[in-house]
């Protein structure tokens, strides 16, 4: 065996072991663990009213978060790429903040602003909308931690998009809105889908910010990750794993669907890996430190 082949072998083994030890084996372990009580036991765990309520609530809140961040993320990305205004660089830098701030701290920030005594919270409270320990609080927390995804996924593709395609649409009679919907959005669709799906899966798993803002009220504001934590604390690892594996499966399905949707014909490298890596050109330095 030549040195070159030896190196290649060593590198490959290292990569496989690394991904295996850190991701695949723990996945298998939790999968195995969840089925120790048999499939019936797994289903029974999910049928606990608290558990099913937590799962449904998590999915609903994550969907709401995804929809809001899709709309405002597209808007922010377009503004950051296309418009010159004073302080743009600062706004651009701030987009990465949710990656840099521990999510518990993010929760405290939201609570301070939207709590009943907070600047905006008091005003919302007067209008009848409670945020703290209420369901909207969950969405606020999820919005905060997932904000960078859509923006950062769209920015590079928007910058790459040749503006002459939009101008071509203008010369063919299309106004700015039609052009945006029929030319710009379809052109950046892979980036947009990546941002949307990553927002969704990240929101599904959020713990720190949600627990501070929305608390831990069973059947009301208790999301899946908080429920899992509670079950571990009360010595019910079985129930914890069953809910965990459910959330995990939803995330996995979402990622596989994204992979299908964004794979160009003939592309072999899993796009999700490529895009996932590409998305963190600046933020890899300060990944979330929960």
């Amino acid at each position: 065996m030549t040195l070159h082949r030896l190196t290649a072998y060593a590198l490959r083994s290292t990569a496989v072991s690394y991904v295996g030890l850190l991701i695949i084996l723990p996945l298998a372990a939790i999968g195995h663990h969840s089925l120790t009580g048999g499939f019936a036991g797994f289903l029974k765990d999910l049928q606990q009213p608290q558990a099913s309520s937590a799962i449904l609530l998590t999915i609903e809140a994550a969907l709401a978060t995804t929809a809001l961040n899709a709309v405002f993320g597209v808007l922010s990305a377009v503004v950051l790429v296309r418009y010159e205004f004073p302080g743009r660089w600062f706004l651009n830098a701030m987009v990465d903040l949710p990656f840099a701030v521990p999510t518990l701290v993010a929760g405290l920030m939201i609570a301070a602003l939207y709590g009943p005594t907070g600047l905006i919270g008091a005003w919302l409270q007067a209008g009848g909308l409670g945020v703290l320990y209420e369901r909207p609080g969950i969405v606020f927390a999820m919005l905060f931690v997932t904000m960078p995804f859509t923006i950062r996924a769209l920015q590079p593709v928007l910058m790459e998009l040749e503006q002459d395609q939009e101008e071509a649409a203008f010369t063919l009679g299309a106004g700015p809105w039609i052009t945006f919907l029929k030319v710009t959005i379809p052109s950046v669709l892979p980036g947009l889908l990546t941002g949307i799906f990553l927002t969704f899966v990240r929101a599904l798993g959020e713990f720190g910010a949600v627990v501070v803002v929305a608390g831990n009220i069973p059947m009301k504001t208790q999301v899946a990750s908080v429920y899992v934590y509670g079950e571990i604390e009360s010595y019910n690892p079985q129930g914890a794993t069953s809910v965990s594996i459910t959330i995990l499966l939803i995330s996995l399905l979402a990622l596989l669907l994204l992979e299908r949707l964004t794979r160009p014909p003939g592309e072999r490298l899993p796009t999700i890996l490529r895009r996932g890596l590409m998305m963190f050109p600046l933020s890899h330095r300060f990944m979330p430190t929960k």
Binding site: D164, Q165, E167, V183, P186
Partner: peptide, 12 residues
């Protein structure tokens, strides 16, 4: 009718 230098066809 405008023909752009790099054609600007709609790729999708």
């Amino acid at each position: 009718g405008f023909v752009f230098q790099h054609y600007a066809l709609f790729k999708h």
